[in-house]
Amino acid sequence: MIYFVYILHCSDNTYYTGITNHLNRRIEEHQSGKNFNSYTSRRLPVQLVYYCTFTNVEVAIAKEKQIKKWSKAKKEALINNEFDKLPNLAKKKFPHKK
């Protein structure tokens, strides 16, 4: 079975990261807004901006959890295929001490 880790761009300019084994169906579920308590239902419309595939569900879940912790800038670097920027983008920036 194939598993998809995906990122949606929401109407409020935020990102939602998820995992599924049926990407098209899952995007349609997000777009329908039928789960009123979901993050995306209040931020419609949403647009698929990134996905990657896995054959191992545990690896896919780990990747989803990793991406969810990333900063917006780091997610945008991934979306834009700017892989060289990923190591230098951190969730929090701390000032250098002198």
Score class of each variant (00 low, 15 high):
Lys69Val: 04
Ile67Arg: 02
Lys93Glu: 07
Gln47Tyr: 04
Thr14Gln: 14
Asp12Gln: 08
Lys63Ile: 03
Ser11Gln: 05
Tyr51Leu: 07
Asn88Lys: 14
Tyr15Ile: 06
Ile61Thr: 14
Phe83Ile: 13
Ile7Trp: 06
Val59Gln: 12
Ser38Leu: 09
Ser32Trp: 09
Phe36Gln: 00
Glu29Gln: 15
Lys93Asp: 10
His96Lys: 14
Asn13Leu: 10
Phe94Trp: 12
Thr53Ile: 02
Val57Asp: 12
Asn88Met: 14
Ile7Lys: 00
Tyr51Ala: 06
Val5Thr: 01
Ser38His: 00
Lys85His: 11
Gln47Cys: 13
Tyr51Glu: 08
Met1Phe: 09
Lys91Trp: 04
Ala73Trp: 00
Gln47Thr: 11
Lys34His: 14
Arg26Tyr: 11
Val5His: 04
Lys65Gly: 00
Asn81Gln: 12
Gln31Phe: 05
Ala62Leu: 07
Ile2Pro: 10
Ala62Lys: 07
Cys52Thr: 15
Lys85Glu: 03
Lys92Pro: 00
Pro87Leu: 03
Val59Pro: 10
Tyr39Phe: 12
Leu86Ser: 02
Ala62Ile: 03
Gln31Thr: 05
Leu23Ala: 09
Thr55Val: 10
Ile67His: 07
Val49Lys: 00
Ala60Phe: 01
Thr40Ser: 02
Asn88Glu: 14
His30Ile: 01
Leu89Asp: 04
Arg25His: 13
Asn13Pro: 00
His30Gly: 05
His22Arg: 15
Lys97Glu: 11
Asp12Tyr: 02
Lys74His: 03
Ser71Lys: 04
Thr20Pro: 05
Arg43Glu: 08
Leu86Pro: 08
Arg43Asn: 12
Gln66Ser: 15
Glu29Lys: 10
Val49Pro: 05
Asn80Thr: 15
Ser38Glu: 10
Thr20Ile: 04
Phe4Pro: 08
Tyr50Val: 09
Asp12His: 03
Gln66Thr: 11
Ala62Gly: 01
Pro87Cys: 08
Glu58Asp: 10
Ala73Gly: 12
Lys63His: 14
Ser71His: 00
Ala60Pro: 01
Lys68Trp: 05
Val46Trp: 03
Thr14Met: 07
Arg42Thr: 09
Thr17Leu: 08
Tyr39His: 11
Met1Ser: 10
Tyr15Val: 07
Glu82Lys: 12
Asn24Cys: 09
Asn80Gly: 14
Val59Thr: 10
Tyr50His: 06
Ser71Pro: 01
Ile79Trp: 03
